[in-house]
Each structure stands twice: as C-alpha cells, then as structure tokens.
C-alpha cells in the first residue's frame, strides 16, 4: 500500500432519510445541501424519501409565486454530483397517490422491509 492510499480514509456509507414535504419547512433544502457536500467529500451517499418526503420529488414544482427557490433544480444536479442511489418508499408513494412517472428524477421503489435492511447496512443515518 502506498502512502497516499494509506492516508485516504475509506468512504463512509451515509444515508439521508428525508421525511418532510418541501417549501412548508426548509429541512428538505438544507438536507439537499448536506447531501451535495457529502458527495463532494467522496462519501457513499444514499438518499431515501419516506412519508411526506416523497413530495419533494414531485414534477412541475413552481414556487415562483411564493418567492422561493425551486428545489427541483438542485435535484437535477444530483446526477452530476454522482448521487445515483435514490429511493422512494413504495408505501409512502401509494398512500399519497404518487407514481414513479410523476417524479422529476429517476428514483427506485424500495419496500419497507428492504429499507429496514438498508438502514442497518449504513455507517450513519442522517434524518431530515
């Protein structure tokens, strides 16, 4: 092992658990800033949307009239940052009448039990 390899810490598995709807509360925006930072730090980032958090990914958001920044644009940047592990909990989507086709970025369904397993596999889970 070379010196450089030795000094470089192994990336951590960080899962961001998002449970809030956008605009009514600023946690979703602040969570997204943290996600981008974690990715810039080279960490292994997973993004999960649960409960009202799934509304963050709804297409056609236009907050111009409430004079807020559009969250959609930052979500579109996730791919550029190399964040590809994006999941929406299936039951949360169904309860809210949402389908994958209504989401603004490609996200995968995750079943509740799979999510249980995924949480256990992380180094840290950050809830927003």
């Amino acid at each position: 092992m070379t010196d450089t390899e030795h000094k470089k810490p192994k990336p951590k598995k960080l899962l961001f658990l998002n449970r809030r709807a956008p605009y009514g509360c600023s946690l979703p925006r602040e969570a997204l800033d943290a996600v981008l930072m974690a990715s810039a730090f080279g960490q292994q980032v997973t993004l999960v949307f649960l409960d009202d958090g799934v509304f963050q990914l709804k297409k056609k958001q236009d907050p111009a009239d409430i004079e807020m920044k559009n969250l959609s644009k930052t979500f579109a940047a996730l791919e550029m940052y190399g964040v590809n592990e994006i999941y929406v909990e299936q039951a949360s989507m169904q309860k809210r009448g949402l389908t994958l086709a209504q989401l603004l970025i490609p996200a995968q369904f995750i079943a509740t039990q799979e999510l249980s397993l995924m949480l256990e596999q992380q180094d840290q889970v950050l809830s927003f």
């Binding site: 649960l50 409960d51 039951a91 999510l115 249980s116 397993l117 949480l119």
Partner: peptide
C-alpha cells in the same frame, strides 16, 4: 405525529 408509526413500520 406519524413518527411512531413510521418507525415501527421500518424498524427491523
């Protein structure tokens, strides 16, 4: 709040 419910659903 739905916190307890969501946690019980997801907790292994």
């Amino acid at each position: 709040s739905s916190c307890l419910q969501s946690c019980l659903d997801v907790a292994a």
